[in-house]
């Protein structure tokens, strides 16, 4: 199934690229690098079977950091990392333990971004993610981590240039972490600097 999705994405971007060539072959910018910082609301689509949904806190503040190489054409390439809390669980177990569990994630995505129209971008990003789980209230406090190898991010961005050096905007982001089958989205404000 994932293979078909990847092929689908490649076809999709191929189509966009091809259609863009006819009316947009003149470069609008020079090749440059940008460094972007984002922060905003993130939401976890809870799918836990063991804990009632009411015990799962799903909304947090997430941050992202993105370094992009933006050549003079529509496609750009970069790396993105960040810090997100996926969930926090506060649950009484067996009337005995007041258990608290939280999972944080630090992803590292390879971002492939395309300018669709002026100031509006779409990107897809496969990557890896380090997931941290911390548990307290039942036995000793334990922090565990694991590497998730099959992860995916899709982002829609509106980025408005402020002069020649700065960019501000907003991003909507969808993230999937394969190891734990966790899905989350975020909407964040972005501030970027051209290097």
């Amino acid at each position: 199934m994932k293979r078909y999705i990847i092929i689908g994405f490649l076809c999709l971007f191929g189509t966009w690229t091809a259609s863009s060539q006819t009316n947009d072959s003149i470069p609008k910018t020079r090749s440059h690098f940008t460094l972007a910082v984002g922060a905003g609301w993130s939401h976890y689509f809870a799918n836990m079977e063991l804990v009632p949904a009411r015990n799962v806190q799903k909304d947090f503040i997430g941050t992202s950091f993105r370094f992009m190489w933006e050549p003079e054409y529509r496609l750009s390439l970069g790396l993105e990392t960040g810090f997100y809390r996926i969930f926090k669980v506060d649950s009484t177990i067996n009337s005995e333990y007041n258990m608290k569990s939280r999972m944080n994630v630090v992803p590292l995505f390879l971002v492939i971004r395309m300018r669709i129209v002026d100031n509006f971008y779409l990107s897809i990003a496969p990557g890896i993610a380090l997931q941290y789980t911390k548990i307290t209230g039942i036995g000793p406090e334990i922090t565990s981590h694991q590497l998730s190898l099959a992860n995916f991010e899709a982002t829609a961005s509106y980025l408005y240039p402020l002069g020649k050096l700065f960019i501000v905007g907003g991003e909507a982001r969808y993230m999937y972490f394969g190891k734990t089958n966790d899905i989350m989205m975020s909407i964040s404000a972005v501030f970027a600097v051209k290097l």
């Binding site: 836990m48 258990m99 569990s101 999972m103 789980t133 548990i135 565990s144 694991q146």
Partner: peptide
């Protein structure tokens, strides 16, 4: 799907 994830030897 539950609130724990990570190596089993950690817990």
């Amino acid at each position: 799907k539950g609130p724990l994830s990570g190596p089993i030897k950690d817990f």
